[in-house]
């Protein structure tokens, strides 16, 4: 067995994979939230649609995206492998289990992760898949008068079937034609069930990261009397509060305030 294979077959190696993929996904969340804040700008989806287009058409980002999908799958797969091993380590359970000092989230990472996985399937099926592989998302044309900065919009029906997007300038007016993912967002978030699913999932994300972020540092062996409290702070405030709240605010905002 090669050294690396041996390492990643060990309990600590497998845990390291969980930790590193988890932390990678955490960094993605920051980027994702940052981009999605465009949903709060009142430009009828102009900024958001351009951003969505950029994400799907800029090759380096596409590469990163596939690494990301891989990370999600590996994270989930190793979670399953580790859980099976953990179950085998205690074939007979206890009749009585008292409330322990361990946090609820730390003991329910598998449940929280499963919720998140189901959510990801729904979420990606709704947006990413429909955006990329179906014609369910229509096009929009944004005309910006470069002199005044005024933007107007209209639906656009592409002539060619394989049209993806275009940017051109005519008479000092910039014409941007892109898929209108924003409309998809508006439509989805007008459904109370979707809003609920999203909010619940973000709750799960909060608890998953509340334990997961700092746990990843422990698993990787990065503890330090001075810096570990900072890691705890970031894990708690950034990853368990700000990020899930930010994401959850979007469906709520669209359902109650911005109905298109």
């Amino acid at each position: 067995m090669s050294e690396f294979k041996q390492t990643f077959n060990s309990s600590l190696g497998k845990k390291l994979i969980m930790a590193l993929t988890g932390l990678f996904l955490c960094t993605f969340l920051i980027v994702h939230l940052g981009g999605n804040l465009l949903l709060f700008s009142k430009d009828n989806g102009f900024g958001f649609n351009v951003y969505a287009n950029f994400l799907t058409h800029f090759p380096p980002i596409e590469v990163v995206a596939y690494i990301l999908y891989l990370a999600i799958l590996v994270h989930a797969l190793y979670a399953i492998i580790l859980t099976i091993k953990n179950r085998k380590a205690r074939p007979v359970g206890y009749a009585v289990q008292a409330k322990s000092d361990a946090t609820w989230s730390s003991k329910n990472m598998g449940l929280l992760g499963s919720i998140l996985f189901v959510f990801l399937v729904i979420h990606m099926g709704d947006f990413w898949f429909k955006y990329k592989y179906t014609n369910e998302v229509n096009f929009k044309e944004y005309r910006t008068d470069l002199a005044t900065g005024q933007t107007t919009e209209s639906t656009y029906t592409p002539a060619a079937a394989d049209f993806s997007h275009s940017v051109s300038t005519e008479n000092n007016v910039e014409i941007v034609r892109v898929k209108d993912l924003h409309a998809r967002v508006v439509k989805t978030f007008s459904n109370i069930w979707y809003v609920l699913i999203y909010v619940i999932a973000m709750g799960a994300l909060s608890f998953h990261l509340l334990h997961g972020f700092q746990s990843a540092f422990r698993t990787a062996g990065w503890v330090h009397r001075k810096y570990t409290p900072i890691v705890y702070g970031i894990g708690c405030w950034v990853f368990a509060v700000i990020i899930p709240l930010g994401f959850a605010a979007m469906p709520v905002y669209y359902y109650f305030v911005n109905r298109g």
Partner: peptide, 17 residues
């Protein structure tokens, strides 16, 4: 660690129990 794995103990999930 190798011996620990061989004995069939589970993995740490840092619950602190």
């Amino acid at each position: 660690v190798a011996q620990m794995d061989e004995e069939g103990f589970g993995n740490c999930t840092n619950t602190g129990a």
